[in-house]
Simulated scan of single mutants.
Amino acid sequence: MPEGAAIGTAEDRAVPSILLFIGADIASFILFFAVFMGERLAQPVQFARSAAQLDARLGLANTLILVSSGWLVARAVRAGTQGNRHGARRQLFAALLVGSGFAVIKLVEYTADFQRGLTLLTNDFFSFYFALTGVHLLHYAIGMVLLGYVARMARTSTDPEFETWLTGVGLYWHMVDLLWLFLFPMFYLQGLW
């Protein structure tokens, strides 16, 4: 190999880069989850009473929305990597449409919480609830923008990096799904026991 030559192409490095980002992001959430669980063990009654104030049906609906949207993104990645940009674009738009329900439900839920006087300052449970679901909502919003970008890219671009972008955004979206699959039982289901 000539001196100073790059190892691999930009495309070869792109997916591992997103994997490093996802790994670091998940590691930070794991730290927050551990702190939450420590506080939950220290205040079991308060956490159970607080969790019982959340609407588990809304949390379940959002779980189903994100899992369905993730399935559509997986179909888009498959279509895109098989050279079917039109099919990938259709699946991405379907994922965006289904996924938008998540924001609608969170808006309804947060509005109801605030109307009942529940805020970050209510108690430790709600501090964690609003902080972690809020950070997740930010990740979700970034994911929606990225899905829209890749859907547009599928329509207008002949860029050879499309598959790399599609795969990277797909991995990011699945991280958003995965994080919610931990947040949902952590916050919504403990109030049911």
Rank of each mutant, 00 (worst) to 15 (best):
V176G: 01
A51N: 03
A5C: 12
A5E: 10
L54M: 07
H139S: 04
G80H: 00
T156K: 13
A14T: 11
I30G: 07
L31S: 15
A94C: 10
L54R: 01
R13Y: 12
D113W: 09
D12S: 12
G59P: 00
Y149V: 13
T158H: 14
F32G: 03
I7C: 13
H139I: 04
A79D: 02
A10L: 15
W165M: 11
G148K: 03
Y149Q: 09
A76Y: 01
F184I: 03
S50M: 05
V150H: 00
Q46E: 13
T133I: 05
N123M: 08
L92Y: 01
V98F: 06
I65E: 00
Y172G: 03
L54T: 04
E163W: 04
T158V: 09
R40K: 10
F29A: 09
A151T: 00
F182A: 08
A52F: 08
S17M: 12
F125E: 00
M37Y: 12
W165H: 12
G168I: 01
T158A: 14
N62P: 01
V169I: 09
T81G: 05
T9W: 05
I7P: 05
A141V: 08
L31R: 08
V15Y: 05
I26A: 07
G191I: 03
D25E: 14
A112V: 14
Q115E: 15
Q46I: 11
M186R: 02
W165F: 15
F93P: 00
R78G: 10
V108A: 14
S157R: 04
L171N: 03
W180P: 00
Y140R: 02
L132S: 02
S69Q: 02
I7E: 14
G99C: 06
Q46P: 01
R90C: 04
Y188T: 00
Y149P: 03
E163M: 09
V77I: 15
